[in-house]
Design a protein around this nucleic acid. Sequence first.
DNA 1: GTATATGCAAAGCATTTGCATTAAA
DNA 2: TTTAATGCAAATGCTTTGCATATAC
Lengths: 142, 142
Amino acid sequence: MSSPPLVDRLRARNWRLTAQRRVIAEVMEGEHVHLSAEEVLQRARQRLREVSLATVYNTLNELVAMGEVKPVDAGSGATRYDPNTGASHHHLVCLGCNQLLDVYLDPSATAIELPPSERHGFRILGEEILFRGWCPSCSDQV
Amino acid sequence: MSSPPLVDRLRARNWRLTAQRRVIAEVMEGEHVHLSAEEVLQRARQRLREVSLATVYNTLNELVAMGEVKPVDAGSGATRYDPNTGASHHHLVCLGCNQLLDVYLDPSATAIELPPSERHGFRILGEEILFRGWCPSCSDQV
DNA sequence: GTATATGCAAAGCATTTGCATTAAA
DNA sequence: TTTAATGCAAATGCTTTGCATATAC
C-alpha cells in the first residue's frame, strides 16, 4: 500500500545522494505537500544551510523526470511540486489565496476517459483535473 | 445558440473601442483559437501595424476579467488564451510540440462534480480538465 | 474636454544556464 | 580518480508597470 520513503526509493535508483538532495527529498516527503521551489528552499535550509535555489530547481526537475514528483501549474505564479504520485487524485485551488488542496474522486465516477473520437490520434498518458473556487476564509472577505 | 461576434459583445459592454482593441478582438474570434500573447501580437500586426505587446497583454487581461476569454496554462512556457467560453470543453496538449486541442466530453459522462465531502468548504466555480499525450507526428519521432 | 488607452523601455518574477569549485562513489 | 553535483551570478522568457503621448467618447 504505502511505498518506502522517497529517499529510500532514490537510493534504490542509484541516485547520487548528496547532502542537498537528501534534505530536498526529505522536504518533499508526504501526502499533501504542494510547495513552490522557493518554499522548498526555505524548508531545506532549515535542515542544511548550504543549499541554493539552483540546486533546488535542478533536483526538483530530476524528481519530475523520474516521475517521483508532479509539477502543478495552477496559473498565477510559481509551479508547485506534488510528491504524491501514487494515489490518483486531483486539485482544488483557491482563487483568492491560491492555496492548493488534494481532492479524491470516486474512481468509478472518475471514468474520465477520452472517447476515441476525441483523441485526435494522440497517445494519451494522463489527465489532470483542477477545481477552482473560493476557500472559506477568502469567501468571507468578498 | 451561437453568440454574436466578440467585437459586438464588447461594444455592447460600452468597452472603449480603439483600433488596437478591435484587431485583437478580431484575432480572438473563433472556436478553436489558443494563441499566446506573442502569437496574438503577430496576427494583430498583420491587420494594424501600430500594436504593441503591452497592449496585447493589457487587452487580453481585460478580456479575461470580463470572462470573454479563458487563460490556459498547460505548463511549459506562455499562457494561451481561449475565446471559447460558451461550450463546455476541455483540452488536450501534446507533450512534444505543445499543441493544444479542444476536446468535448459527453456531458452525462462529465458529471465531474466534486462531492461535498471533498469540497473543503470551498465555493466551487468551475473545473478544468487537461489531457496530456503525444500527438501523431510527435509519436512517430519517438 | 476629459478620461482612458497606447507604446516604450525598464522592472519583476520564475526558471535556466555556464563555469569554476567541490564532493560522491 | 573519475564523474557528476553545487553555487554563484548572469542570462532568459514571460508578463507587468510607469509615464509621457495620443485618442475615443
